[in-house]
Computed example of a mutant assay.
Amino acid sequence: MESELLVDRREGWMVLTLNRPERLNALNEKLHRLLAEALEEAAHESCRAVLLTGTGRAFCAGEDVGGLALAAAEFQRSGALPPDLGVTVEAHYNPLIRRIRRLRKPVVCAVNGVAAGAGANIALACDIVLAARSAKFVQAFASIGLVPDSGGTFFLPRLIGEARARALALLGEPLPAETAQAWGLIWQVVDDGALRGEAEKLAARLAKGPTLSLAWIKEALNASSANDLDAQLDLERNLQSLAGRTPDYREGVLAFLEKRPANFTGRAS
């Protein structure tokens, strides 16, 4: 039986493919565990970039509502207390978002179809998001009486502004990929048939980049929303001190002077 997460190890980078197409790649405990293990592996020095995508006609439909429906039905029959969904969020979704944001490597997301609920917000947690032209992003929580999680209430207003974020969260209407790009929610829309190839080219390019520099860029951008200008300037100074002592900085300068492509190693020494 094929794994629910396909892990394709390339030279210096990894492709992680959600593989529950019959459930629109909805997340369950097993898939969360496999993702956690794969992202832990990606933290090793040999991996310098990650591509996250899905199989079939959806990127990810969020939580597998089949399990929620069974629990709700049992609640109706027995009158017992319903399951605490906050426990599920804390055990699985919050750690996943933190792993993606804190991974010291760039994470590219290729949204190959519908990204709904937590699936949409997992995509938004990634560093660069490409989407198929037919893809849609749906904050589906309110339609089943829930609240956006997986960072949705954090990412949306910062990416597209409060007015649009409120409408998407409250109405739960699908947002076409081309509108998502126009609003600044994602990086790029490509034709459906070209998505995987374009995403792989981008991940391979990032895997050959100055990995430590890219990690510090992520760190600075992650901190910027909580910092005032003075704190951010201080952080930039400190990170630049570190970057300026790396072999990749020396190589980058030499390559520029010699008018050739840089051969970055991503190593500290």
Rank of each mutant, 00 (worst) to 15 (best):
A125F: 02
K201P: 07
A49F: 12
R101L: 13
G79R: 00
A120H: 00
G151T: 04
H32F: 15
D234I: 09
N94K: 14
A61D: 10
T55Y: 14
V7G: 01
P210Q: 00
E41L: 15
A163I: 06
L70G: 06
R260E: 00
I186C: 03
E90H: 11
L130A: 01
H32Q: 10
D127W: 02
R158L: 14
D230N: 08
L239S: 10
E29H: 12
A226Q: 06
P148K: 05
G54L: 09
L146C: 07
E74G: 06
R57W: 05
S213V: 03
G197T: 08
M14R: 00
E11S: 12
A268G: 08
A120L: 09
G79M: 01
A262D: 02
V108C: 04
N238T: 12
P21I: 10
D248T: 05
F256L: 14
E200H: 05
D248W: 04
F256C: 07
R77A: 10
E40V: 10
G12D: 01
E2N: 05
N94E: 14
A255V: 11
N238P: 03
R20N: 05
S213L: 11
A91L: 13
F59Y: 14
V138P: 01
P176R: 04
T211M: 06
G184E: 08
A231Q: 14
F75I: 06
G209D: 03
A165S: 11
L195N: 02
R133N: 02
L31V: 15
K105G: 00
S3H: 12
A199F: 09
R102N: 06
L96N: 02
E178M: 07
A36R: 11
Y93G: 01
E22C: 04
F75V: 14
